[in-house]
Design a protein around this nucleic acid. Structure first.
Lengths: 110, 110
DNA sequence: GACCTTTATCGTAATTTTACGATAAGTAAA
DNA sequence: TTTACTTATCGTAAAATTACGATAAAGGTC
């Protein structure tokens, strides 16, 4: 056996975990930052900016796309990626809910 | 080859990725919530509350401890875990920085 | 001391992630 | 149409993650 006991948790928690996983690799964080800071969100620029092979970057982009944080559009021979701010907002909302939930009952026990 | 190109990114990004990874599994989110909501943070209660074996829960607890989000104390035959609010605050700060960085240059391209 | 309870760790297996080279697929340019 | 360029996908390999049973370790209780 291995992973995939995921469906035993409530959807809310599972979704937050999924989104957090998207942020759990420095390359994916760097990709999101790169896309945000440039107006032109061309894949080649991202590849150049990262210390990873083109295939690997493409894989990370796919992962970000799958959770919904990125949306992409084929633009001639190149691909245009941009941030889905709706999903980014969803992530923030989930995180806020999580943090306030955890912090309201703040008290040290050790 | 596999993972571990991590050291090629700046420490800030790597740390955020590391903390995000801690939140990237529903069990670990559930553990943090459980510990927060109970004053007595006894491992056995967490195991009971989760659909996972004791060994697996212990493993997740260790992961949370390793990134600093939990601190634990042996209390007789049982262990007492509690949230390290300093590190939780660090995580929130990292996330805030990340989100504001990404959102300031908000503009749709597709 | 013998026994029970609780939890960490070990050993192991399945799965997933990460990474890359090679290649395909698509478009523009010559 | 041949060529060059860009990016997605395939195949593959190494490593990490997830999960669990079994066992060890450590502390109470009888």
């Amino acid at each position: 056996m291995a992973s995939s006991k995921t469906e035993q948790f409530d959807a809310h928690t599972t979704r937050l975990a999924e989104l957090a996983k998207a942020l759990s690799h420095p390359a994916r964080l760097a990709i999101l930052q790169k896309i945000a800071e440039r107006n032109t969100c061309i894949c080649g620029e991202i590849v150049e900016a990262l210390p990873l092979a083109q295939a690997t970057v493409s894989q990370h982009l796919k992962a970000l796309k799958e959770v919904g944080l990125l949306c992409g559009e084929i633009d001639g021979p190149r691909s245009c990626y941009c941030i889905n701010y709706t999903v980014l907002g969803e992530l923030q909302a989930h995180l806020n809910g999580f943090f306030t939930g955890v912090e309201t009952s703040r008290q040290k026990c050790c």
